[in-house]
Design a protein around this nucleic acid. Sequence first.
DNA 1: TTGGCTCTTAACCCAGCCTTAACCTGCGGC
DNA 2: GCCGCAGGTTAAGGCTGGGTTAAGAGCCAA
Lengths: 226, 226
Amino acid sequence: MLQVLLVEDDIDLATAVVDYLALEDIQCDHAANGVAGLSLIQSHAYQVIILDLNLPKMDGLKVCNEMRSEGNDTPVIMLTARDTLDDKVTGFGVGADDYLVKPFAMAELIVRLQALAKRRSGQVKKLHVADLELDLQLKQATRDGQPLKLSPIALKLLELLMRQSPAAVSRQALIQHVWGDEQPDSNALKVHIHNLRKQIDKPNQTELLTTVVGFGFALTDAKSCP
Amino acid sequence: MLQVLLVEDDIDLATAVVDYLALEDIQCDHAANGVAGLSLIQSHAYQVIILDLNLPKMDGLKVCNEMRSEGNDTPVIMLTARDTLDDKVTGFGVGADDYLVKPFAMAELIVRLQALAKRRSGQVKKLHVADLELDLQLKQATRDGQPLKLSPIALKLLELLMRQSPAAVSRQALIQHVWGDEQPDSNALKVHIHNLRKQIDKPNQTELLTTVVGFGFALTDAKSCP
DNA sequence: TTGGCTCTTAACCCAGCCTTAACCTGCGGC
DNA sequence: GCCGCAGGTTAAGGCTGGGTTAAGAGCCAA
């Protein structure tokens, strides 16, 4: 199921969009200002983000710029009023992937969403966390230059963890990312996390993959002393 | 089905083109700036690329120049405004194959697209990966100077793998490239990969064609030590 | 028509991955 | 001190994805 985030301060419009997307079986979170939106972006793994241009607290351009500079390459659709069309250039410069001029047809939004969801923004080819590197083209991870042997599932887990780093990722988000809706019983995730950890942390000194009790896991660079 | 990429920052124009091409059964991806465009070019195998001249982040000339220098010879159509017609000369110098002056008729775009799709740009005549060489004109591959005997399908597979190298290529992309939309059942791809591997890797020492479990295959030059 | 070629399909094997279950550890509350 | 819970570890087994082989169909040229 598609998971998207809408950042929009017009509450009527937002409600309409969320409801409409629900009909299409697209799960849509909503934030009403830029700061809240950015925070959700940092802590979730959405497949597409819909950003209004004019937002309280932090405008859409700023949000987009910020997330890109953090290495997040989730595709972004910008919403703009007709009279601010000039912002288009700025918007693309800042890393947006598509535009929609208000008022827009819901059907068009769906089409664009689904087109963008199929691909990553493609502006990020390698992910880095400390001396860990994941080459998305080669499907190959290395730590300290040494290639790691990861199973397909371990690779998916690692990708999500690295994209969200240094934020923690919930168990549910990890499960959703790997298995989608048909989730396995028992403790499959535990085992895969264990295997991943064995690959990443065993041969080295510093521990990157940490447990967030009662929530999930996080990939973080430095650990402060206890 | 034709697969093309449009790199264009004017969202209205882009939408119009994508929609129009869809009617003609041409599947058109869209990138809104030069960097995103180049990235898509590097990671997909389009049959034609439509490049706007003026783009945010990296202009069309730069994009074209860059892809050519990477050995990509997908045909390129440049879009240019009437008042920058002088850039034509520069454009051809940089490796564009055709030109279209804005505003242009959609019908004309279609015609040019289909004309270009039939041929490779022809500006790149040989592909190289390690000591593997593929002569696109002679349809002849050699490894370490020794000619290889490849069937037509094996040749197509090799071509795509070499163009994308060192990135991994998904099974789906390989199937799409060889058979288009009418895809064979069963394990035809397995057999052809097997045959290709027999030709490429058997008589030599280093293994070039590697399997990416759960994804596809990759042609890579060097393998690091275990 | 025949021969040679390639492509498709099917059948089979095998390694390695994924799942599952069972047990272990550490911690906090009762 | 005991129990329950959350997470960690390990091993067994099924199963799937990928590799291999061979037979038959289709095609083209002689």
